[in-house]
Amino acid sequence: MAAKVLIVAEHDGTKLNPSTAKSVTCARGIQGAEIIVAVFAAKPDAVAAQAAQLAGVTRVLTIENAANEHALAAVLAPQVVAVAKDCTHVLAASTTFGKDLMPRVAALLGTAQISDIMAVESANRFRRPIYAGNAIVTVETDPAATIVGTVRSASFEAAASGGSAPIEKASVNVELPTHTRFVSVSAAKNDRPDLQTASRVVSGGRALGSADGFKILYSLADKLGAAVGASRAAVDAGYAPNELQVGQTGKIIAPELYMAVGISGAIQHLTGIKDARTIVAINKDGEAPIFEVADIGLVGDLFQIVPELERLIG
């Protein structure tokens, strides 16, 4: 049976999330796969147009419904199941969106889910990290079952643009629950690059000492055009907001350059940065575990080094 992969697009109503382009690359690893991107939205046209440009996408389906204005798993799941009827695979990014939605889809389909796919070995064989990335397991599913999976964005490059897939409207006739209602979302105002997809990230740990201490990082990040991240310890201490957390239970990222400033390097943090191209560590403790994974290490006082770096980069 030819593979037919449905990818559930992630978006904010106007912009397609870059993680969707990475899921497309993952799907392209499944030989001969037809790749369909489904856009569930109140007004899907703008997002669908962006999805149609991703190289490798065969078709874009729009499922327009006022109930789809906010991504509510309980509302989306039955629609995804209906659209995925004759698909072999259903994928979404392993972001908070995909982690919320896909297990609900898998349960409705009565199928197991493969979380955090990091490599495609065949249409029904995948590799994924477990134990905070301390082990990699190869899993195989029954090829006859619908395969539901979430895609680890850090493991795949974004699909190039330049495609022009046809966009079709799909109608879904399922009853949608009203027991779950969106109230609000408070996103930190941020003109910096998005942490999840930035090519450069400057991250701070508890050694920054305070929310005020983080200011030197923001300043350096702005010089570098970098996003700002934080360790769990720094977030727990209230020095940085939770959406900046990098690690096993925060964001898993793969920038070209990752600068860990005053971060000791707990296992759960290292899990989040394993795929960074170059890791720079700045820490006053030369024995800190972060130096075991750093490509370039500098032992010293971050409060002197960071402003100096900013000056030298100019």
Binding site: R125, G133, I136, V137, V139, E140, T141, D142, V293
Partner: peptide, 17 residues
């Protein structure tokens, strides 16, 4: 439903400078 085919340690990073 999922067959656990094999477990491996993660790839190690090259030693840095």
């Amino acid at each position: 439903q999922l067959k656990l085919v094999k477990f491996e340690p993660p790839a190690q990073r090259q030693k840095g400078i």
